[in-house]
Design a protein around this nucleic acid. Sequence first.
DNA 1: TCATTAGTTCATAATTTACAGAACCAAAAT
DNA 2: ATTTTGGTTCTGTAAATTATGAACTAATGA
Lengths: 153, 153
Amino acid sequence: MTLTEQQLSLIEEFGVYQENNGFQPAVARVMGLLLVCDRPELTFDEISEALSISKSATSNALNMLLNTGHIEYTTFPGDRKRYFRIKSSNWSEFFVKKMDDLSYLSTLLKRVLDVRKRDLPIYDAKLNDFISFLDYMKDRMPSLIEEWQKSRK
Amino acid sequence: MTLTEQQLSLIEEFGVYQENNGFQPAVARVMGLLLVCDRPELTFDEISEALSISKSATSNALNMLLNTGHIEYTTFPGDRKRYFRIKSSNWSEFFVKKMDDLSYLSTLLKRVLDVRKRDLPIYDAKLNDFISFLDYMKDRMPSLIEEWQKSRK
DNA sequence: TCATTAGTTCATAATTTACAGAACCAAAAT
DNA sequence: ATTTTGGTTCTGTAAATTATGAACTAATGA
C-alpha cells in the first residue's frame, strides 16, 4: 500500500471537502483513501497504516462509514480480514440527499411565512419566489435524471 | 421585539439547519431571527436581546454574515443605529453556491480518476457515471432556471 | 492449550469552538 | 468637556470534538 505524493494530497483535499460536509477528519480521510488508492479494497491495518491513525480511530471511522452506508466490505474464505471499499451505489444517494435537503428547506421556509406577519406583502415576495423555485427543482429532478440516462446511451 | 413561542422554536429549527450547513450556532440563530421576526429589519441591540447573546457574540455574528453577504443593513438620517436584514438576493446565490459545490466535486473526482490507477476499467465506471451526472446537472441548470421563470408568468 | 490475529471499548489527553465579560474606541449628544 | 451611544476587540474559559494508547475480547491457528 504505497501512495504517491499526488494521491496523498488528493486524500487531504477530498478529506477537507468532506469535513465541510460534516464528517470527522479521520472519517473523511478514510473515505478519501478508499477513493484514491489504486486497489479497490483495503484492510483495516492497511487503512490504519496508510493514514497513520490509531486502531481505535480506524475502528471508529470504519464503523461510522459502515453505519451510514458509505462503505461496505467483503471477506474471502480462509482470510479473517475484512476488505473495505466505497459503496458505489452511494453516489446517487448523495444527490438524493442533497435534494431531500432542499425539500426540507422549502417546508421550513413555508412555515416561516405562516408564522411571521410582516405588514407589507412585498416583504414576503422574494421568499415566496425562492420557495417556488425550490419546489420547481424538486419536481423537475426525476425527469432530469431520466433525461441524463437517455443522453448517455 | 417580542417573539411568539412559534417564532422562537422556528428560529431554533432554522438555526440547527444552518449549523449543519457549517454556521456557528449564534450566527445561525441571528439568521433565523432576521428571517422569522415580524419586522424586516432589526438593530444590534434588538438582536442581542432577542437571542440573549452577548454583545461580542452579536458583533461577531453580524460581521460574519455581512462578510459572507448573507445580510446587509440600512441606516436612517439622524439615527446612528444600523438596521440589519437578510439579503434577499442571497436566495438565488444560495442555490448557485450549491451548484458550485457540485462543480468542485466533479473536478475533484476527475482528478481522482487521473491519479489513481486501478487495473480494471470496471472499477472506474461508477465514478465516471457520477461525474457525468454532475456535469449534466451543471449544464442543465441555467435552462432550468429559465424554464422556472417562464412557468411563473 | 497457548499464541496470534483482527479488531472493539474505555479512559483520558489534546485540540478546537464558541461564547461571555470587560476593557476599549470613535462619533455624536449634552 | 464629558457623557452616552453603538458598537469592536481582547482575554479567559467551558464545553464539545477528536484522537490516542492500553486493556480487552472473540475467533483462529499452531
